[in-house]
């Protein structure tokens, strides 16, 4: 499988990465090189093979359903680029 220019733009949008028209041809070549490389997996027969979801078999531990921290709003917003009081600010979403 390979991607065309329109697909490169669509992936960019899905990934929320702005792509200029000038960048599309080079990206298309690079992505297609990677897709051609992974294409060899198609020659394997994987019928009946379980997909791996956990590389080390283990039962996931569950913690008690209790509040274990909180009241750290100052710490949470400390690294934000734009804040007001204890809120993150973003461009207007709803008109």
């Amino acid at each position: 499988m390979s991607v065309d220019a329109a697909t490169v733009r669509r992936i960019g949008h899905l990934a929320r990465i702005a792509i200029s028209d000038a960048e599309v041809p080079a990206l298309q070549v690079e992505l297609n090189a990677i897709l051609a490389f992974v294409e060899q997996l198609q020659e394997l027969n994987v019928d009946g093979v379980e997909p791996m979801t956990s590389v080390m078999p283990m039962t996931m531990k569950k913690r008690a359903d209790v509040v274990s921290d909180g009241d750290i709003a100052d710490k949470i917003i400390a690294n934000a680029p734009v804040t007001d009081d204890h809120f993150f600010l973003v461009p207007k979403v709803v008109e």
Binding site: V3, L14, L31, L41, V46
Partner: peptide, 27 residues
């Protein structure tokens, strides 16, 4: 580049052909 490849292989219609198959190969 890697985010875009990852986005593509997880996108609708390609998940089984790429990601699921790769997980099986991992097994």
């Amino acid at each position: 580049r890697r985010i875009m490849i990852g986005t593509y292989v997880l996108s609708a219609g390609y998940y089984d052909a790429y990601y699921l198959r790769a997980q099986k190969v991992r097994t």
